[in-house]
Design a protein around this nucleic acid. Structure first.
Lengths: 189, 189
DNA sequence: TTTTGAAATAATTTCGAAATTCTCTGGAGG
DNA sequence: CCTCCAGAGAATTTCGAAATTATTTCAAAA
């Protein structure tokens, strides 16, 4: 705690409060009278993360697509457009540029399910996205070609926009499986 | 804050920390420099709550049933047994007795999906259960006959134990719909 | 009469120190 | 040689006061 206090130049109270909220988001674990610690990494944790993400996104996506909202569809196209412009930043060395890509990437996935109009699903997706980031950085060096990834997102978007629900869900599942396998190989699990 | 500090006889630090964690569980909302407040009630919130609950439980239930774990099945039977013994406390006036029923009720639902072995799904289900409690108390006076409810749970359990996945999911969905309609009628929405 | 602005009030937020709790070390007993 | 227990040390946790920020009130001007 002393180290963190110095690093961020704040007192104990705001530090404890920040950590408490990170507990709620699953990034930090608190044990009574034993302080806070970073949530542990493990292959099982990755599987769990992917399982819940898959479940929530599939549910939200089906709900969103069942509604067929015009405004939501426009938002998806808009989010993809931004993602397209920033795809080049995905492998950048500049943290600011990479962050701008990550933001667009998150926004794209959120836009896909925004039509479900579920604040809780959005909140959970955001939390899971942050949790996945801890593993994503492990893959930073060896990622697939940005161009290919973009085409994957385009395919997904088009499946959503043309109401091919099951195909879209399958595409999501496929992407997650690829990601998981890449991570598993990279980490040597 | 002064009132809460008096009520629980604690200082500001633990109070703030407790509220921060409730933020993570969705029971409290924090606005910067404007303090904490109780998360608002609304018909839309009920719909969202039910939607996410339905999504998570369905996903976890399918995963759990796909595994067909012997130990998990035994845990379900055990949890139902406890629920059966405490069903009488459901409409009790004694808060302690009612709490023991609620505990068994929660444990039963958690047991159904425990086979999925997903810490995150369990965490989310617990959080949603706590959130639903805020609405459940509104229905406390006029609840269906405990005996009928117990039979509903028994049916659900048997569907799970006999691997009738789709039927079990349908039963869950039906129960939620009934609950929602009862709540909507009771609150005059 | 309505609006604007400033002072007063009341809230949230932060800080540093005190109190409690846990962990580690060293030694005695089995 | 291993186990158990007590004391010193280091951590977390809590407290009350100070500082910051938001809200309300009241008066003056448009």
């Amino acid at each position: 705690m002393a180290e963190l206090r110095q690093r961020y130049a704040i007192g104990l109270s705001p530090l404890r409060e920040a950590l408490s909220r990170l507990v709620g988001e699953g990034l930090v674990i608190a044990e009574g009278q034993r302080g806070f610690r970073v949530a542990p990494f493990s292959p099982e944790d990755v599987d769990d993360l992917i399982f819940v993400w898959q479940t929530i996104v599939e549910g939200a996506l089906r709900a969103a697509m069942a509604r067929r909202d015009e405004h939501s569809e426009a938002a998806i196209v808009a989010a993809f457009h931004v993602l397209e412009r920033r795809i080049g930043c995905a492998t950048s060395e500049d943290p600011v540029a990479r962050d701008s890509y990550e933001q667009a990437h998150r926004a794209f996935y959120l836009a896909l399910t925004a039509g479900a109009a579920s604040p809780r699903a959005t909140y959970i997706q955001n939390a899971l996205y942050d949790q996945a980031r801890r593993y994503r950085v492990l893959l930073h060096r060896d990622q697939p070609d940005p161009k290919d990834r973009l085409e994957g997102y385009r395919t997904l978007m088009q499946l959503v926009l043309t109401s091919q629900t099951d195909m879209a869900v399958a595409k999501l599942r496929e992407d997650l499986t690829i990601w998981r396998d890449g991570l598993t190989r990279r980490a040597g699990w």
